[in-house]
Simulated assay, not measured.
Amino acid sequence: MHTSLQVTIASRELLQKFIENHTLEQLNTIPDGFKNNIIWNIGHVIVTQQLLAYKLSGLAMMVTDEMVAKYQKGSAPQGSVSQEEVEAIKNLLFTTITKAQEDLDNGLFQNYMEYTVSTANFTLKNIEDAMQFNNFHEGIHIGIIMQLRKFV
């Protein structure tokens, strides 16, 4: 699990740079031909990690139900995100992973409800599967963000 979390941290460092290197307007821009924007993709990976690791383990998430509704699979941006919300998302990039590491170290992830992901038609059976798949998922969204930034 240590390697998997190190990969997640590296992913989150890239996402942090996208936030820091783009204006609020750029983060909120949805270019022609796209369904979402940079900040939605970043919020989405945070929410997805929380759902895959915590909700499917029956544990409390660090994100609100409102944030889940706004960034979960199948959602799309509904207007611009404020600078305050960008800062909250930026903060969650690392606090969620630090908490996951602590909870893994403390053995909190005892139960896991199996879940078949639509992206790869693969069934997650435990927290290890969830964390590994999460890295794959974040990689997909980093690729999308790399495309988006060309047009903002």
Rank of each mutant, 00 (worst) to 15 (best):
D105P: 02
F94S: 04
P31K: 10
F122T: 12
L56V: 00
Q132C: 11
Q147P: 01
K35A: 06
V117L: 08
Q78H: 10
F34T: 04
N106C: 04
V47R: 02
N135F: 07
E84G: 05
D32Y: 01
T116F: 06
F109V: 08
D65F: 03
N36Y: 05
E102A: 06
N28Q: 07
G74I: 12
Q83R: 11
W40M: 07
L56F: 15
M131L: 14
H137R: 01
A76T: 10
V152E: 07
T29N: 09
D129F: 07
L59M: 10
L14P: 03
D103Y: 10
N21H: 14
V68P: 06
Q26V: 01
I38V: 15
T96P: 04
L59S: 04
T123F: 12
L27P: 03
I39Y: 08
G74A: 07
N135W: 03
V63M: 12
E20W: 04
Q26P: 08
V63K: 11
I89F: 11
V47A: 15
K73H: 07
N41Q: 05
Q72S: 11
Y54W: 09
L14T: 13
N126Q: 02
Y115L: 05
M1Y: 06
K150S: 13
Q50H: 11
S82H: 10
I9G: 04
D129M: 06
D129R: 10
L52D: 01
L27C: 09
W40D: 05
V86T: 05
H141G: 13
E102F: 02
A76L: 07
Y54H: 13
N106S: 11
L92Y: 12
F136G: 00
G143E: 13
V152M: 09
V47Y: 02
H22G: 07
A88R: 14
K55Y: 13
D103V: 01
T3I: 08
F133H: 05
A100W: 01
E102L: 11
I46C: 11
M131P: 00
I127H: 08
A100C: 10
I19N: 11
Q6F: 06
H2P: 00
I42C: 09
V45N: 13
F136T: 08
G33A: 08
I97F: 03
Y54I: 10
G79H: 03
L5C: 04
F109S: 08
V117H: 09
L104F: 07
F34C: 03
F136L: 12
L92G: 00
A76M: 08
T116P: 01
M62W: 03
Q147Y: 06
M113L: 02
I127R: 02
Q78K: 13
G79L: 02
Q50S: 13
F94V: 09
V152C: 15
V63W: 09
T116C: 11
V117E: 13
D105F: 01
K125A: 12
E128P: 04
Q6G: 00
A120G: 00
G107S: 09
A10Q: 14
K17W: 00
Q6W: 00
H44M: 05
K99G: 00
E20H: 08
F34S: 06
E87A: 14
L5E: 08
G74N: 11
N28C: 01
I19A: 02
N36F: 01
L92P: 06
D65T: 04
V86S: 01
T116G: 00
M67I: 11
G58T: 10
M62V: 09
